[in-house]
């Protein structure tokens, strides 16, 4: 049995290599790392609103250094048109009058009050810090987590299906029907290979983008969640490849999954846009667990692990049945 299993693994490895899967995975890793270092981290921040002061008579004496003085009201108007979030203060007649373009009611309130506060800067105040990360580390973990999720959901899922469709096209699945090899080994070899690839990918992404020091604390938790997601997606890809007629049909399913499954998960998990039904979305929980692993928040709920194990067992059962059906059909 061991010999059969390694034989299957070697063959699947060669199939993946000839399909350039490893090349694509490596390329993705390089691209993502470059994007994180030279793209995402450079522009993922937002400065507070600019405040422009028109005070020709110099009536405002205690002005913060954050305020930008302007020479005329016309200049202030032009700056406000360009700078959507900017706030102007017209102190031409000695009494400050706040001028700003509307955004949302509450934000406008804050913008106006903030601008006025800069005319009376108090002592420097530093908020109390209750966390351990800084913005850069948070951004690194955020984007690494998201890209890892995308990679496993999209590329891994695609990879296993493309290998299977190739085998279907070559007709060798029907040959396996008459070989003395268990279907479980046939499924297992592919799933294991993709699992190993995904774990290696996750390790590289974490070590290179989060840093060796931080990665040491979170890597094991990240790898556990990666393994869960990888197993789910590999088995789902296997099932889709068995049930769908050709790769073209599969591409459709892939589009739907990538777009409609991933989008609500990202929106809910990364922004304050919350959808009431999101808790019924299975990928939401997996994504949240992966994110919690990155932020060292621990995933201790036994219910989550029990559900995940049952899902994997169920998917494996469906994959086995689908393979048996396909072998009968093709044979």
């Amino acid at each position: 049995m061991k010999k059969s299993f390694w034989s299957l693994c070697r063959k699947d490895c060669r199939m993946m290599a000839s399909g350039k899967f490893f090349f694509v995975a490596l390329g993705s890793f390089v691209l993502y790392t470059l994007f994180i270092r030279f793209g995402y981290l450079q522009f993922m921040d937002m400065e507070i609103y600019n405040v422009y002061l028109y005070d020709p008579a110099g009536t405002q004496t205690e002005v913060s250094s954050l305020v930008h003085p302007v020479a005329s009201l016309k200049e202030m108007d032009a700056l406000l048109v360009e700078d959507a979030n900017g706030v102007g203060i017209d102190a031409g007649d000695g009494r400050p009058r706040v001028v700003l373009y509307t955004g949302s009611a509450k934000l406008d309130c804050h913008r106006a009050d903030y601008a006025l506060s800069l005319l009376h800067p108090g002592r420097e105040y530093v908020p109390e810090i209750v966390g351990s990360d800084n913005l850069e580390m948070k951004n690194r973990k955020d984007i690494t987590c998201e890209l890892l999720f995308i990679e496993i959901v999209a590329v891994g899922f695609l990879g296993i299906a493309s290998v299977l469709f190739k085998e279907k096209q070559m007709g060798v699945i029907r040959v396996h029907a008459i070989l003395p090899v268990r279907k479980s080994l046939f499924i297992g070899s592919k799933v294991l290979l993709f699992l190993v690839t995904d774990l290696v990918f996750a390790s590289l992404m974490t070590l290179c983008n989060v840093g060796l020091a931080e990665a040491g604390d979170i890597l094991s938790a990240v790898l556990i969640q990666t393994a869960i997601l990888s197993l789910i997606m590999a088995l789902t890809g296997f099932i889709c490849a068995m049930l769908l007629r050709d790769f073209k049909q599969f591409s459709l399913a892939y589009l739907v999954i990538a777009l409609f499954v991933a989008t609500p998960v990202f929106l809910s998990a990364n922004t304050s846009v919350k959808m009431a039904w999101i808790h019924f979305h299975p990928f939401y929980h997996v994504y949240r667990s992966l994110k919690n692993a990155f932020f060292d928040r621990g995933v201790t709920s036994p219910v989550y692990y029990i559900c995940v194990v049952w899902v994997i067992i169920l998917l494996y059962g469906i994959a086995w049945t689908a393979l048996a059906r396909e072998m009968r059909k093709e044979g």
Binding site: S18, M170, V172, V175, I178, V181
Partner: peptide, 27 residues
Amino acid sequence: IGVLFEFPYLYANLSALDNLHYFASFY
């Protein structure tokens, strides 16, 4: 048993020897 199908189903990206060694590995 051995079964020869109507069409030659083989791994197109592998050589003849590789195909044979692969299928033989299950026996």
